[in-house]
Nucleic acid binder design. Structure first.
Lengths: 342, 342
DNA sequence: TTGAAAGCGCTAACAT
DNA sequence: ATGTTAGCGCTTTCAA
């Protein structure tokens, strides 16, 4: 196993000191044209590449960003990783991905580990449910000296920067659309209570209120995102309700497939037997022409990275608050039908 | 900005030397019970966490694995990342994800960068097309001292360890299934030519051969995986052929949605108007009851990590070759119908 | 402009 | 059992 080529080797071959070689390679300080040339040649010849670990130890930056999220397999997370990697690349950063499996203990472990790695920033889609209070002993993990950006989910008791869609407003618009179509009995299906889901529910309630309709708790059901059987059961309960809803508003795409399977088994058609409106786009939605609230996920990932860069450079960001909330939009397709009262 | 807590601080507080503190924290060497206790207490008190960058520089390992692949957003890659992260976690490793966008130049750049980071291993789903010859100047990137495992795609001119499905055999089985159903005119749709696709085509041809059917080149079409319009066009060409195929065999799931959209526009039903068989499972396939060749992706990711660990530890692996190829299986659903000759 | 040398935080060889 | 010290490869003062 041949040893690694270091700046020392380059210096030797070029006939200069380590410092001078380093200056050329690193592109800092002053070097004479002659030295520069000799060093460049040596670099070429040896195919020298700086050791980023040593740079990381010595310097201020490891050129690394951590993305910590609930489930890599989830479509939303997936697109987020894609966007983050792409944007980080532009700044010469690499991305470490950590999966919490929606478990806070694991999230805490990852955070500690990432700080041990001295990552330059953390992008966190926290597993904290909206009820969870931040434990005091963990506060510095969520609010320390390492730049951190929260994506999507807000943590109670922490007023950090959160990049997310305008959940409440977009949800209000979506619900209003259903109401305008004449629906008065709109069931809502959501995953466990995260802050985003709560905001979407708020938007839904506001729309109801505007139409003078009282919110009925039996019209709000929760299901875990990774349990298809349970999703179907919950869907079944909704469909079997005394006064069956005429529209189903699904707040998380991961629930969609379970809903569709239950509908299929019952030979129910969309939108003939039930209007359907879903959050987050997937290819499936396009194929089945499901009206969808589309979040600007890739934009969220991009902005998150940019935000970290800004925090790192300590650049003031007066526009920051404006960029915190990005607009989701509704793609109207064929899954919602006007409902005529009898 | 308070300075980081180092082993020095721990040593001081515990009233021992750095070395002793290190021994306790690192869990190596001999320490007296009394010292151990003092150090442990200091660690607790200071909430000390070792600097992994320094460990990486000093030691043999950065506890990092790189996954380099064509497209994070792709469902297959996505599951692979999931599996790799999960398995790496077990060994205390973290995962850096790099996206090549199926571009060799970027792949090369990522490899160089990852070696600069001194990752302990690389899992590579190469962007090399099956025609591409490995450039000699890049050989050491693909076959250097850092453990590397190829997933799925083989690189011409390189006899490294490749973890993949039994593409040829599973494809043979799939084609045979269609032939047994009576289909004699089976169109194949695939993405650009990667080694996996080639092997699947081989399996298809072998099945044809067994049934005494000659392969017709117009029954083999290629489409790029990320261009829905193009996929639809190519599908259209297949459907508009003089003697229209009675079955369509799609070798990559990413093409599936385009095919389905084209079928939908034509009001063609599966399997009534066309039998459909697809590689790689997605939720969509289950919902639409599409018969599918399912690859053990998560197993592939897991085995890839284990292989890296073995390479790193230099553990002989007599069973290795057996584990190189993992069995894909066919999930029979409702998308293939017996074809009766007139 | 250049070189010598310190030091980032850790581990491990060596000495006590 | 414990402490001293060198050194991983780099950047960055400080002198020359």
């Amino acid at each position: 196993m041949e040893p690694n080529i270091t700046i020392e080797d380059v210096a030797k071959l070029a006939g200069v000191s380590r410092a001078t070689a380093g200056r050329v390679v690193g592109g800092y300080g002053n070097v004479s044209a002659k030295s520069r040339e000799k060093v460049m040649k040596a670099v070429q010849e040896l195919d020298y590449r700086p050791n980023l670990v040593a740079q990381g130890l010595r310097g201020q930056s490891t050129k690394t960003i951590a993305v910590i999220l609930g489930s890599i397999k989830n479509n939303y997370c997936n697109k987020l990783i894609y966007a983050v990697e792409k944007e980080a690349q532009k700044y010469g950063y690499n991305v470490i991905v950590c999966n919490t499996h929606e478990d806070i203990a694991q999230e805490v472990g990852h955070l500690q580990n990432m700080y041990g790695r001295h990552v330059d920033g953390v992008i966190l889609m926290s597993a904290c449910k909206s009820g969870d209070e931040l434990k005091e002993q963990h506060r510095d993990l969520y609010q320390g000296k390492t730049p951190i950006v929260f994506v999507d989910r807000r943590i109670k008791g922490l007023d950090s920067r959160v990049i997310q869609s305008n959940n409440a407003e977009a949800s209000y618009q979506a619900a209003k659309y259903l109401l305008e179509l004449g629906h008065r009995n709109i069931a809502v299906l959501a995953t466990d209570e995260y802050s985003t889901v709560n905001e979407r529910i708020k938007g839904y309630k506001r729309a109801l209120g505007e139409y003078g309709i009282e919110f009925r708790s039996q019209n709000l059901a929760f299901a875990p995102h990774n349990d298809k059987e349970k999703i179907r059961q919950v869907t079944a309960t909704i469909l079997d309700a005394e006064e069956r809803a005429t529209a189903l508003y699904v707040l998380n795409n991961s629930l969609c497939i379970g809903v569709l399977m239950e509908l299929k088994e019952r030979h129910m058609s969309v939108p003939e037997d039930l209007s359907l409106l879903v959050w987050d786009d997937e290819e499936l939605n396009e194929l089945l022409e499901i009206t969808t609230v589309v979040q600007p996920i890739e934009e969220i990932g991009k902005v998150a990275v940019q935000d970290l860069m800004r925090q790192k450079e300590n650049i003031a960001d007066p526009e920051g608050e404006k960029r915190e909330v990005l607009d989701a939009s509704i793609v109207f397709r064929q899954s919602c039908k006007a409902y005529e009262k009898c």
